[in-house]
Design a protein around this nucleic acid. Structure first.
Length: 279
DNA sequence: ATGTCACTTTACAAGTGA
C-alpha cells in the first residue's frame, strides 16, 4: 500500500497485521529475566516496553534478549527507574528523556519509531503520597510530559504512549473507590493530567475495549496478599491516537504472570498489558 | 492499609523506594 497523507492521518499504516504490543513494569530486569524471556516466548509480541529495569545500560541483558530475537533500545540508571523498548524490528529515531523534565537525572521515558508507529514508553513518578514533595514533582512531571508530547507528536498520526503511569484514571480503576478517594495514584489532580492526554487525542484502549467495568487491573501490591484478595489497581496504560485506537482488536492483562507459580523466580508486582492491533 | 520485594551500603542489618 502506498502511504499518503490521508492514510498516515488515519493510522492505516500504523502496523502490520496482528501487531502485538506489551507494556510491563518488570521491577528489576535482573530479577525478572527468566520470566521476561518466557513472556516473549509465550506471546511473541512485536514490541515489549519495560519499566523499572533498575539497571545501568551496561548491565542490561542485551545478549539474552537478542538471542530471543529482540532488538533493544535502553535508557537505564543504577538502582532505580530505567525503561526499555524491545522489538523484533530495530527501533528507529530513539530518544531518551524529554526536555522540561523536572527530574532529568531519572531515566523514565524512551521513545522510538517502529513499523510506522511512534511509540513512547514511560515510567511516571510515583509521588509517594498526597502532600509529600514527591507528589508535587509528580504533577510537574506529568505537565512537562504532556507539554513535550504535544510539542513533539501529532495525535493525527499513529502514536502509542504506554507504560506505568502510576495513576488510576477513574474509580473503576481501583478495587475500592472509597478506600482510594483522594489518595496518591487516584487523586483528582493526577486524574486531571491523564484526562488532559485523552483530551489531546489519545484513547485509553483498555478502558475503551473493556467498557464500563472494574479494571482490568494491572498492579497488585506485594503486601497483604493483595493479588489473592483482588486488591488491584489499573495504573499501567496504553494510550493510542484515534487511528490506532480504532484498530485495536484485543486488550488483555496476563494475570498468570503475576502468580508465584508461573515460571521461574518471583513475579513483578505488575502484570503485562497486551494490546493487539490489526493492520 | 501496609503482612513484600528489590535496591544499596566502609554490609552480614537497616534505610529507601515502591
Amino acid at each position: 500500500m502506498q502511504e499518503t497523507a490521508a492514510t498516515r492521518a488515519a493510522g492505516v499504516l500504523a502496523c502490520r497485521p496482528g501487531m502485538k504490543i506489551i507494556t510491563w513494569n518488570v521491577n528489576s530486569i535482573r530479577q525478572r529475566l527468566p520470566r521476561a524471556l518466557a513472556l516473549l516466548e509465550r506471546h511473541r509480541p512485536d514490541i515489549l516496553c519495560l519499566q523499572e529495569t533498575k539497571v545501568t545500560d551496561e548491565e542490561f541483558p542485551l545478549m539474552e534478549l537478542g538471542a530471543a530475537g529482540y532488538h533493544a533500545a535502553i535508557f537505564g540508571q543504577k538502582s532505580y527507574n530505567g525503561v526499555a523498548i524491545l522489538a523484533r524490528e530495530e527501533p528507529a529515531s530513539v530518544t531518551r528523556g524529554f526536555p522540561g523534565n523536572p527530574v532529568p537525572e531519572e531515566a523514565r521515558v524512551i521513545a522510538a519509531r517502529i513499523g510506522g508507529l511512534a511509540l513512547v514508553g514511560a515510567y511516571v513518578v510515583n509521588g509517594k503520597e498526597v502532600g509529600n514533595p514527591a507528589y508535587d514533582v509528580k504533577l510537574e512531571w506529568l505537565d512537562a510530559f504532556a507539554d513535550w508530547l504535544a510539542a513533539t507528536y501529532d495525535p493525527a498520526e499513529p502514536l502509542l504512549v504506554v507504560g506505568d503511569f502510576n495513576v488510576a484514571p477513574d474509580d473503576r480503576d481501583v478495587y475500592s473507590a472509597e478506600a482510594w478517594r483522594g489518595k496518591n495514584l487516584a487523586s483528582e489532580p493526577e486524574r486531571d493530567r491523564i484526562a488532559r492526554l485523552r483530551g489531546w487525542g489519545l484513547t485509553d484502549v483498555a478502558r475503551a475495549h473493556h467498557g464500563d467495568v472494574e479494571g482490568p487491573f494491572t498492579f497488585w501490591d506485594y503486601r497483604m496478599g493483595a493479588f489473592h484478595r483482588g486488591w488491584g489497581l489499573r495504573i499501567d496504560l496504553v494510550l493510542a491516537s484515534a487511528g490506532v485506537a480504532a484498530r485495536v482488536t484485543d486488550v488483555t492483562v496476563d494475570r498468570e504472570e503475576r502468580k508465584e507459580t508461573t515460571g521461574e523466580g518471583k513475579p513483578s508486582d505488575h502484570a503485562p498489558l497486551i494490546v493487539t492491533i490489526e493492520g
